[in-house]
């Protein structure tokens, strides 16, 4: 079944109808009708790799302290969308952003030309698909972020490192070998180390790009538990190929197809009662 633009517009209208006209916020924060405050708003986002348009006019809300999952078949643009949040595309020569990603509560446009990508990355961290710790000691891996921010005293760094390793539920396994090379850890441990590293800059938001696709089931479930723990202090957006994972872990789900947002809503609704046949087909495994 082919998605037509009128269909998308209709869905979007329905979605924004549910989101846009919420109650008047008390503290000046944006809220969604479900009472969740928003951390970010993607507004008519477009993205081009050279001449190819990878993201077509996508708008969606990111709720604060919740997990938003991005799902969809290969090539639908979910990773591309994720990487717009922390300006990772800036590393590629031929890229172009269009539209806005508004970060709340300050209201800055993350992809605005006057915004410093380095500053963005200090506030929005990323965990990658294949664990990529630095070939340094566990301590140095986590301490890298704080060092960039200017912390150089041994005791302060140690405190930060411990905080992050504890938050990533890997402190007990690491505390006796902080000076050992991170490459000696197992895959799952390395990924938790990368999560610890991403926590070091005290980010407001963490982006997970298929964080468990390279891991075994036990490591996967540990990471998922971790994400659920972390969401109370950070906002999380996760791209995943694994729909069961999305169903287990996320509060909101966005289904993308060929660069466009096909459907968005609370995870329960998307998986139990999707409004779009395409979504239903994908979820039941008929394609992708």
């Amino acid at each position: 079944m082919k998605i037509t633009t009128p269909m998308i517009d209709a869905f979007k209208a329905e979605a924004s109808g549910r989101l846009g006209s919420g109650r008047v916020p008390e503290s000046g924060q944006e809220v969604s009708p479900g009472g969740d405050s928003l951390k970010a708003r993607v507004e008519s986002l477009n993205f081009f790799y050279g001449k190819f348009q990878a993201i077509k006019n996508v708008s969606l809300p990111i709720a604060e302290n919740k997990i938003t999952a991005l799902i969809g078949p290969s090539g639908c643009g979910k990773s591309t969308l994720l990487r717009c949040f922390n300006r990772m595309h800036d590393l590629i020569p031929d890229h172009k952003y269009g539209g806005r990603i508004t970060l709340l509560p300050d209201g800055d446009n993350l992809i605005g030309p006057d915004v410093d990508p380095i500053a963005v990355r200090m506030r929005i961290s990323m965990v990658f698909q294949k664990p990529n710790p630095f070939p340094k000691s566990i301590f140095e891996n986590v301490a890298f972020g704080p060092r960039l921010r200017g912390i150089s005293r041994k005791d302060e760094l140690m405190a930060e490192v411990e905080r992050c390793l504890r938050a990533a539920a890997i402190w007990d396994e690491c505390k006796d070998r902080l000076t050992k090379n991170a490459y000696n850890l197992s895959g799952g441990q390395q990924q938790r180390l990368c999560i610890a590293r991403s926590l070091a800059s005290r980010p407001e938001m963490i982006l997970f790009d298929e964080p468990t696709s390279a891991l075994d089931p036990i490591a996967t479930s540990r990471i998922e538990e971790l994400m659920l723990e972390l969401k109370s202090s950070v906002t999380i957006a996760v791209v995943t190929h694994n729909m069961q994972q999305a169903a287990r872990v996320s509060d909101f789900t966005a289904f993308m197809y060929l660069g466009e947002l096909a459907e968005f809503g609370p995870t329960q609704k998307i998986f139990m009662n999707p409004a779009n046949k395409l979504t239903a087909d994908y979820i039941s495994g008929r394609f992708g």
């Binding site: 300050d106 915004v115 410093d116 200017g150």
Partner: peptide, 17 residues
């Protein structure tokens, strides 16, 4: 450091260059 020039009202580093 050059990476975090102070903080703004929400307690985080400002995003403008």
């Amino acid at each position: 450091s050059a990476n975090s020039p102070g903080t703004n009202r929400s307690g985080h580093t400002p995003l403008k260059r």
